[in-house]
Design a protein around this nucleic acid. Structure first.
Lengths: 250, 250
DNA sequence: CGACTGTTTGAAGACGATCAACCCCTGTGG
DNA sequence: CCACAGGGGTTGATCGTCTTCAAACAGTCG
């Protein structure tokens, strides 16, 4: 493993002997392909890394309007990004797990458009943006990776267009969370939701009560088992079918 | 005017004597600032341009799954992007007007994730993506512009998270459409909607009937005048107030 | 034990979707 | 010249889902 020491990877990658596996768990994984990776560029990338954290639940990593000077790669924990209006209402935009890159959208006007908050205990890698932008001009793969990260975020945001039944949204959310865990070598069916129900509700644009009720209905139908924040997906195919209304759009 | 001949600009830019105006009407406007623009790079960019069109209403510019090999700048007309599931239902993701750049999100997996369709008669500039990616590595401003375009799309997509009253969505939509026109030198209050009601409804995740009803309510309240696809914004401040629920989030 | 937050459950109400009908305009063909 | 068909748009009535308000409940920490 090339450089886990520098914290580019999440804490518990699967060591299956195939380095390409990291393409899906680390935003800079593309740079690490056995063939074609640029050793010098990788070294430069390492020089940019600055470890920050831990941030504890509720701590803000950056706020809306802060000067955009860096992007962050999640190394451990979960981060949420949110918008807040003057009346204090907030809208959660996304949850980020280890391997995800945060903050790139600040490039539009040199300010972060949203606030990033630690959901649980979070460790991050910080990359100075001017430096990484300069480097990406020299390393095509890095530039492409950065574009891909934004395109991915865009696609995720687009997924949420359209109004779908509460249960479909929830099923989709649970399945995706499971996929994320599975990508990092954990169980994809036995999962822990680190965020409170209210955050899930906000993210899915539902009332917390609706989340609770939908979850109960899923449980009554035997599709999941729920005990607090521990969730077991009992019938993934049925959940997929439920979420189909959303997922088959892409 | 540096190079309208190559079609980088929309057809009717405002000639107010301030070249920086183009920053808001042309995605590559940043490259054209009086000071700091790179003449050689600009020339190279021109060499990449390939004019395509006209596309007539309903014609597809690219489809979901097509190989991603180019991005397009809208020169005239309106383009919509949409997803379609196997049941034929479609979800409109965005409308693009002159100056907007389409297709960048195809970079994620080398395929366009959505279908781009002409809403009315459309003229485009086509840029081979490999070429523009190479060029952007040499021209920091271009690279930054491309990032900004994606960040902007992302922000627009995020705006639509959250569920807002139908009238607020409509007010927001009309105001934004007016802003786009105003940026290009047209009236921001007297506007023509080139797309059918059904497209507006789909885009806003509403039923066509709801769009019609909301529009009528806005008209009864004296906020707008509607005659077919011609809309006049009579009380922009009141519309802003109505849309506030959405817009004050950013 | 008691304050606290987060979660669940219940009952009432609001909003938008759906179904259905009608209207308006345009183009077409007898 | 008129009749008719077809699409887009509007209007009305009904229904379903989610929200809201309210209260009870569970887990945690002082």
């Amino acid at each position: 493993m090339l450089d886990n020491a520098v914290g580019l990877w999440p804490e518990k990658p699967v060591d299956d002997g195939d380095a390409r596996h990291f393409c899906s768990t680390c935003v800079f994984g593309r740079l690490c392909l056995p063939r074609g990776y640029d050793k010098a560029a990788l070294h430069e990338l390492h020089c940019l890394i600055e470890h920050v954290g831990p941030f504890h639940a509720g701590a803000e990593i950056f706020r809306t309007g802060d000067a955009f000077d860096a992007v962050f790669s999640v190394r451990a924990g979960v981060v949420k990004t949110q918008l807040r209006d003057e009346r204090g209402r907030e809208q959660i935009l996304a949850f980020y797990t280890p391997g995800d890159l945060i903050g790139l959208d600040g490039i539009e006007d040199d300010r972060y458009p949203c606030t990033a908050v630690a959901v649980d205990t979070v460790m991050l890698c910080r990359f100075s943006f001017p430096a990484i932008a300069t480097l990406s001009a020299r390393v095509p793969d890095l530039q492409r990776t950065l574009f891909a990260v934004m395109a991915r975020d865009l696609r995720m945001a687009q997924w949420h267009k359209g109004d779908f039944p509460a249960e479909a949204r929830l099923a989709d959310f649970l399945l995706r969370w499971g996929q994320r865990l599975a990508q990092r070598g954990y169980s994809g069916t036995q999962l822990t939701l680190p965020m409170p129900r209210g955050d899930i509700a906000n993210y899915l644009s539902l009332a917390p009560e609706t989340v609770s009720r939908s979850l109960r209905r899923l449980m009554d139908d035997g599709l999941v088992e729920v005990r607090g924040r521990e969730v077991k997906l009992c019938q993934p195919p049925a959940l997929v079918e439920l979420a189909r209304a959303i997922t088959d759009r892409a």
